[in-house]
Simulated assay, not measured.
Amino acid sequence: MGEEVKVFGAWASPFSRRVELALRLKGVPYEYIEEDIYKNKSPLLLKYNPVHKKVPVLLHNGKAIAESLVILEYIEETWKNNSILPQDPYEKAMARFWAKFIDDKCWPAIRKAEWSPESEREKAMEEACECLKALESALNGNKFYGGHTIGLVDIAANFIGFWLSIVQEATERELLSAHKFPLLFNWSHDFVNCGIVQECLPPKDKVLAIFKARVAAPSN
């Protein structure tokens, strides 16, 4: 078909890995372009995402789309096969709700819980646990949020499935465990052990090294 599909991303970013996973689930070939988002953002990245100046960016036939959840919706609407959203309008709305909940509530709460100073730790951990409790309830006894297959919410929750356990190892602060959240813990195991997901995950040892270096760095 001669389609041009490019992903501007960062290898350790769960957000750009979301986009790659969605494209792989759809069977869409793409070119991946690694960005140095901390020290040397490319002119192309700044051109295609002048508002936020960050990854991921999807470039489709010369048109740029930014923000991972927006990109996932675009991918779903552009390539109809292997849908990542339910067909039922209510279920589709719920999937969008939980995906937004993950980004707006879970992500900030987990970051705060894992990296907050000792004086703020207890309250931050409680808030993060409340988020995980709500997210666990949304599974409704299913293997994945998409039911038997990976869908939008599973993709959005990728940092809980893979990155969170690595952060916990580095910080020695436990949020997600089989004891605290058995259903969510089982989901994370099934998610990261899915073959197509594994293709879209960075090397664990390299990610762990980044987080351990952050823990060891003197606080400002």
Rank of each mutant, 00 (worst) to 15 (best):
D88G: 08
Y38Q: 14
E91A: 09
F191Q: 09
K80E: 15
Y30F: 13
A170M: 09
V153N: 01
E35P: 06
K105V: 15
A93M: 05
G146C: 07
F8A: 00
L85I: 12
E114H: 06
E174Q: 14
E122N: 15
L135H: 03
A66L: 06
R18H: 08
K204H: 12
Y30S: 08
I102S: 03
S177F: 02
R24S: 12
H148T: 14
M1H: 12
P203K: 09
I160M: 04
D36W: 08
I196A: 10
I37E: 00
Q198C: 05
N61C: 10
E77K: 14
E73V: 03
T78H: 06
G195F: 11
H52P: 06
A113R: 03
M125Y: 06
F15N: 05
V19W: 00
E20S: 05
L23A: 00
S119E: 14
E4P: 01
S119C: 06
Y32Q: 00
E122D: 13
D88Q: 06
L175P: 04
A213M: 11
Q168Y: 02
A66V: 14
T78Q: 08
L176W: 00
S137E: 07
N40Y: 07
R173M: 05
N61F: 04
L164G: 01
H52Q: 12
N81S: 15
E136K: 05
A99N: 01
N158F: 05
K92L: 10
K53D: 13
G62M: 13
G195T: 08
G27R: 10
E35Y: 07
I75F: 05
A156S: 15
V192Q: 13
P50Y: 09
L132F: 10
S42A: 10
S119F: 01
L69E: 11
P86R: 03
I155W: 00
K100S: 10
V5Y: 06
L176A: 00
L72S: 04
K47I: 11
P218D: 08
E77N: 15
A93K: 08
